[in-house]
Design a protein around this nucleic acid. Structure first.
Length: 479
RNA sequence: CGGGGUUUAGCGCAGUUUGGUAGCGCACCUGGUUUGGGACCAGGGGGCCACAGGUUCGAAUCCUGUAACCCCGACCA
């Protein structure tokens, strides 16, 4: 085993040995999350929360650029309000937490802790929308929601989680559909260009769509273990909620009309995707654009005169453009190398006496682990170039990995064999009957992930029942 | 919610069979020597043995119950 391949952090279980344990090890070792005494709820530690803050910052700016405004809704929903839309309540009732008492007094009507805020936004919209001049309403909320999940895992499924939920109301069906797709594209673009995670864009089947929606769109990504993760969703509600909540406006011709609504969300679950798409046996690998620390400066022989001064000077310079951390603790340099690698810092900068003599520094990429000697004169440009490179290399590697994990099945036997032996995405045709989805799920535990926008024909028969089929579906086991 | 497992110092574990003063490694603190891929020596601190009951002269250990977490399913972002 060469030095380069040596496993640096013995405490992390290797991915091939036990993927679930690898995931848990990384989360704990990198100090993203600590378990809490509250069932199913996690403490998000500074390093993990900083990732979320960077995600927030980027998305929030994009939302605002497109005209959305942030609001805050109550965290409680009266039972009667939750009941208004039939499909919606059926979808969420099994997993809501109820507040039944205020102090020692029993409430006359119990309140649920919001599992999502459609009903609150709808009630509000019915109060504030009167005229076509009030439209569109483009609201977004950053908050936490609660879903009483049976089993939980940090980031992927917790009883309480952080997210953003956009809720918009439009005059026409066309406008609502446009918004739905626009926001799906915002998410896809964010995943690919910021998180370096390639995604499949598509539409959910009726079985998998959001409770109360006309249509649900999704971006699906592929994890290292061959399981898919829904990384963002955008829903077109049509006028279903508007009718249930009486959200009407007067149009130019003085006629009463129902609004058409959308909603869309991304949650802290996406951090799970970052971990499982990019991570390796040495630990986390963070996409440069959201890494809390982009450059870790490690002084070498820092007791020697001038080293720490130089390191501080570099920190000052680089901090003007990048998120930089200088580690001048008295741990050994080797320890620091492994530590920042494990925590996924994209770029390490080593500076020691030999470098100072030559007016240079050593830059080491988390992705390639190659050392590059660069002159201190133009180090900003070098760092920028390397961070950009790292982003691209991470994206390419993720795309390659997804392609390797994507198969095509024409027959049911083939399909079943792929699910049990290889996993990953399976492209296969579907007749459109929910019974086939149910049968596939029962036989294989794989579900339909989405009907991709980029359709192709891999066969003319449904992979399950053999009847004529025109729709290509991505299938797979999912988180 | 079903099936399996775990719970002893911050982390990883031993000790439980056969009850008798709670241990090891790492981490942490002090001092010194080190420093280009997880350094070394010496000294030191830290535990209601998950929680609640019981049995016993005496419980980490035996008996009841409860909780949290992990894994595999079912349900979901």
């Amino acid at each position: 085993m060469s030095k380069k391949d040596k496993k640096m952090v013995e405490e992390i279980t290797s991915m091939s040995e036990d993927f679930a344990q690898w995931y848990t090890d990384i989360i704990k070792k990198a100090q993203l999350v600590e378990y809490s005494g509250v069932r199913g709820c996690m403490v998000i530690q500074p390093y993990g929360y900083a990732i979320w803050e960077n995600i927030q910052k980027t998305l929030d700016a994009k939302f605002k650029e497109l005209g959305h405004e942030n609001v805050y809704m109550p965290m409680f929903i009266p039972e009667s309000l939750l009941q208004r839309e039939k499909d919606h309540v059926e979808g969420f009732a099994p997993e809501v937490a109820w507040v039944t008492h205020g102090g020692s007094e029993e409430l006359s009507e119990r309140l649920c802790v919001r599992p999502t805020s459609e009903t609150l936004f709808c009630e509000h919209y019915s109060n504030v929308i009167h005229s076509y001049r009030d439209l569109p309403k483009l609201y977004n909320q950053w908050c936490s929601v609660v879903r009483w999940e049976k089993t939980t895992r940090p980031f992927l499924r917790t009883a309480e989680f952080l997210w953003q939920e956009g809720h918009t109301a439009h005059a026409t069906e066309e406008e609502a559909q446009e918004e739905t797709i626009r926001m799906l594209n915002v998410y896809a673009d964010f995943c690919e260009n910021v998180l370096a995670i390639p995604v499949i864009k598509g539409r959910k089947t009726d079985k998998e769509k959001f409770a109360g929606a006309n249509a649900t769109y999704t971006i699906e990504s592929m994890m290292h273990d061959g399981k898919a993760l829904q990384s963002g969703t955008s829903h077109n509600f049509g006028d279903g909620f508007a009718k249930a909540f009486g959200i009407q406006y007067t149009d130019v011709n003085n006629e009463l009309k129902y609004v058409h609504q959308t909603s869309w969300g991304v949650s802290t679950r996406i951090i799970g995707a970052i971990i499982m798409v990019h991570g390796d046996d040495a630990g986390l690998k963070l996409p440069p654009k959201i890494a809390p620390v982009q450059v870790a400066i490690i002084p070498v022989a820092q007791h020697k005169e001038g080293v720490l001064d130089k390191a501080n000077e570099l920190k000052e310079r680089l901090s003007k453009k990048f998120r930089v951390k200088l580690d001048d603790s008295d741990k050994s340099p080797g320890w620091k190398f492994s530590e920042y690698e494990m925590r996924g810092v994209p770029l390490r900068l080593e500076i020691g006496p030999k470098d100072i003599e030559k007016n240079q520094a050593v830059l080491v990429s988390r992705v390639t682990r190659e050392k590059t000697f660069v002159s201190l004169d133009n180090i900003e440009e070098e760092v920028e170039k390397m961070l950009e490179n790292i982003h691209n290399q991470m994206y390419d590697a993720a795309l390659k990995s997804r392609e390797e994990k994507t198969s095509t099945a024409k027959t049911y036997d083939e399909f079943k064999q792929i699910v049990s032996e290889k996993g990953g995405f399976i492209k296969a045709m579907w007749c459109g009957d929910v019974k086939c989805e149910e049968k596939i799920k029962e036989d294989t535990t794989a579900t339909s992930r989405c009907m991709p926008f980029e359709q192709e024909s891999v066969s003319d028969k449904c992979v399950c029942c053999g009847k004529p089929a025109k729709t290509l579906v991505y299938w797979g086991k999912a988180y």
